[in-house]
Write a protein that binds this DNA or RNA. Structure first.
Length: 113
DNA sequence: AGCTTGACCGACC
DNA sequence: TGGTCGGCCAAGC
């Protein structure tokens, strides 16, 4: 087959989790690493920078709720589109309200308040 | 074998 | 509320 398509197991696991995050909710890099039970935030970020474009990358933010540098405008538009809770209101806010939009890791819960 | 880099995190001031 | 510092973990040179 095409060895060029080979994806590291760690990267595959990261993308799999990201793909499970419900719309309107987010997960921090560190959260993803913790759910995997292996690696760290930097490794997750590294994977996202390389393969993130193939998944719902905007649902992965920094622990502070901010989007990665260079993609803040894109992420903000997507957050508003999904109705993600933002600090300071949906209009003025430029970062995610982690207290409300942080995903617990349990699919089916959804419904941020 | 050692240093630098990276879509990070938490503590501290 | 916001800026700085040190710590972490893996990959690349």
């Amino acid at each position: 087959m095409t060895p060029a398509e080979a994806l590291p197991d760690f990267a595959e696991a990261v993308l799999d989790i990201v793909d499970q995050i419900p719309a309107g909710m987010v997960l921090a890099y560190g959260d993803v690493a913790e759910l995997l039970g292996h690696g760290g935030p930097r490794q997750v970020g590294s994977v996202m920078s390389r393969y993130g474009s193939s998944v719902t990358w905007w649902r992965v933010t920094r622990a502070s709720g901010e989007a990665p540098q260079g993609l803040q405008d894109e992420a903000l538009a997507l957050w508003r589109m999904e109705g993600t809770a933002l600090v300071g209101g949906a209009l003025g806010g430029r970062r995610v309200d982690m207290a409300r939009a942080r995903w617990d890791g349990e699919a089916g819960l959804g419904r941020p308040q």
